[in-house]
Design a binder for these strands. Structure first.
Lengths: 319, 319
DNA sequence: GGACTTATGCTCATATTTAGCATAAGCCGG
DNA sequence: CCGGCTTATGCTAAATATGAGCATAAGTCC
């Protein structure tokens, strides 16, 4: 082992690396994700492709795959997570590096792609009109699964996870960020169609768990939704999804679409204005029935770092 | 392209995948990171090794590499980030998947490894005794770099980044989570030793920027520190670093060691107790000079999900 | 016993959040 | 032109969380 060939970069197994993109846009009140797939079939996969030699970086590789498959150029991109398969004897190993991308509005897209409502794949994640009725069935199915465990402690642990993920106790309210935890519970319980791929039980899907995607792409989408729902609370990523000019209510509806929860209008407006994140353009929007709304634009120059007022630790500068 | 061989997993370039671990423990008031390296030399690399065929998952591969190289078994593990090199013509491509691991106390470790004080590599990140004097020199060096830009706007943008990362304006206080941003500024400015590897200017290192690590391992450490500093604020990961019993002040010193900031004792205690995260064991600790402190233990059963009182969005359940 | 040290409990001022109400300013149908 | 309807926008009171300091408790050390 020499300095030129350090240990963490030595040969090892040859691995195929895939790049996957969760491309998100919001149209009116609908959050959408860009799907691609083989020509002719209804798209049910994220845009993706192998990392290739000519890609300068992984991110450029990702951008070129998305653009080639869907025609959609990407703006904001961030890495999400790297998923690895269990190694199967004899087969080549695959890992997938998933990215989250945000674009402003739905561009035109190629034939073999489409903008899917992301709640079609996660119906129980949309609480904007109150608790989705499907939750009942789902929780029932999960509880039934929890009872299939032999050990008493395991049954209890499963019930606790379910209560936590779906906000059942008085202790735990619904937390819109726990998208991945909820999906993984459904997966473990075999209640989503993809679980069938894992062999064992056939797809004993429960109604209301949403449309599946290819491979582990729904897991990637769940990761992306959770990340985005968390991130809009402390970084101005919302504006990556907005057009040049927008009303404060447009902005609110975008936030609601992503988080799947309703927000309090006066407070939302106060929060945004207090940050100094937007400025009036002087124009008005008269699209809807009522009083015309002022149009705003984003002010990126505020660099913006939320003062983190309640940063959850009692910080102090002195001793 | 068939269903059995979907596009995102097709051949592509053959890639070597490395696994890297940032293993963290806290000893008294010192946060430590486990380093390994070739026998004989002073360790200056993170424990790491290639992903191999016999590893069932990436995480088990990581655990086995760390244990083999340092003797340290791992407890809590989470994925941090996947770093990819720019492709160089002709050479094989490498990517490194970095993990964060937390262990309770410093176990024995092999000869070729050591527990380094992480502030040896980031001296300017420790504000527990007030603003580190090295900051002056560093900010000077950064400002000099910012002026080397030709375009006026670029100079301004660099100054804004510096002010933001190091908390210079009245607008921006020191934010202990921005570890990676600060390191990347130093790297771009060529003020850390590793920047020399990038060719161009030789290592024009500035005093006070800390000891380098092999390859991009200091960047990984910066990523880990930032993640950990953010995470202790909303997940009970602190307890992954604590022994079975501890005093509330032990807990506070661990939080301070990680965040590099002093905390207000009564408020810290109030916060912890309010969460119901700990319970008294009935025992007392008499280690230090004063009144003996009650010993506590962690109560994992609270599953704990911070009520997220100020979740940064004006949530409401109704319409 | 007295000085010193750390632990622990309590209080007050301030900042942030939650929630609701009131008013403004457009449209629409008569 | 007027009321009725809709949405925008502004304001305020109450609840909660946070920041900071002080007082007391309970040991150790001499």
């Amino acid at each position: 082992m020499t300095a030129a060939e350090p240990r963490d970069r030595m040969a090892g197994q040859s691995v195929a690396v895939g790049l996957n993109a969760v491309v998100v846009a919001v149209e009116e009140t609908t959050p959408r994700v860009l799907l691609a797939g083989p020509d002719g079939a209804r798209p049910s996969a994220l845009p993706s492709g192998p990392l290739e030699a000519e890609h300068r970086t992984m991110e450029t590789g990702l951008r070129s795959w998305v653009e080639r498959q869907t025609g959609q150029p990407l703006g904001y991109v961030e890495q999400l997570y790297t998923f690895g398969d269990k190694a199967r004897a004899g087969s080549r190993r695959f890992i997938s590096i998933a990215y989250l991308a945000l674009v402003r509005g739905l561009g035109e897209h190629r034939q073999a792609s489409l903008w899917a409502d992301w709640y079609a794949h996660f119906p129980y994640e949309d609480w904007r009109c109150g608790r989705p009725p499907a939750i009942e069935t789902i929780v029932e199915g999960l509880k039934a699964w929890s009872q299939t465990a032999n050990a008493h402690t395991l049954r209890r642990a499963r019930l606790a996870r379910i209560a936590m993920a779906f906000g059942l106790d008085e202790n735990h309210a619904w937390n819109e960020e726990r998208v991945l935890e909820r999906y993984e519970l459904l997966y473990e319980a075999g209640l989503v169609a993809e679980a069938g791929l894992d062999a064992r039980t056939g797809p004993s899907t429960v109604a209301g768990t949403g449309q599946p995607l290819a491979l582990d792409h729904r897991r990637m989408l769940a990761t992306a939704i959770g990340r985005l729902r968390a991130k809009i609370k402390y970084r101005p990523v919302l504006f990556e999804l907005m057009p040049d000019q927008f009303t404060l209510f447009d902005l609110q509806r975008t936030a609601e679409a992503l988080s799947g929860v309703r927000l309090h209008k006066p407070n939302f407006r106060r929060l945004i204005e207090a940050q100094g994140l937007v400025e009036e353009t002087g124009n008005l929007s008269t699209r809807t029935g009522g009083r015309p709304a002022k149009l705003f634009r984003y002010r990126p120059e505020v660099t913006f770092e939320r003062p983190l007022p309640g940063a959850r630790l009692p910080l102090q500068s002195k001793g």
